[in-house]
Amino acid sequence: MHITEGVLSAPVLALGAATAATGLWLGLRRLEEDRLVLAAALAAVFFIGSLIHVPLGPSSVHLLLNGLAGLLLGWIAFPVIFVGLLLQALLFQFGGLLVLGVNTTAVALPAVLCGLILRPLLARGGKPALVAGMLAGSGAVLGTALLAATALALTDQGFLVAAKLVVLAHLPVAAIEGAVAVFVVGFLGQTRPDLLTCALPTATQGGAPC
């Protein structure tokens, strides 16, 4: 999910940058230095995951996987998603530097909120964890679409139709993300259930939780 450079107004860009900076500060505060390598590995995994195209009818859509990131990482998803979006801008010119704050906020904020709300459910394992995966996978994508649409609508009233289309276009993606997140949570629950309670397992004792 990227809004391209040149579209949004200066106040919207400034608001997005301020929100992203706050989220980054909160996320980095919870990320201990000895977990940076693992966090970087997860950032790379979610970067690659967001490039996977899945079939949808005669076409295909690419995954976002931000709900899963928020579910596994909590606030740390903010810097992880920021780094992923920055690398996408540098390597593929998806998005850009000025719009990076808005894009980070649109993708990471719903992810973190889903994570904060649904992680207690995830930690219970079994069916509750699958429900948490489905809600986070779908909810984060819908939240991202709503925030991107809000950014467009706040920029210019003439973007209202485009904003509605953004939300509509993400409905099938949200359904697929929910399904993929359920399967990923189910797979992790069978193979590494400890990751469902903390995805960065080498945290030093007494350190901040994920």
Binding site: V45, G49, I52, V54, A181, V184, F187, L188, T191, R192
Partner: peptide, 10 residues
């Protein structure tokens, strides 16, 4: 695809 992603993550 979810299992491929999960295995890549692990």
């Amino acid at each position: 695809i979810a299992v491929l992603f999960g295995q890549t993550l692990l």
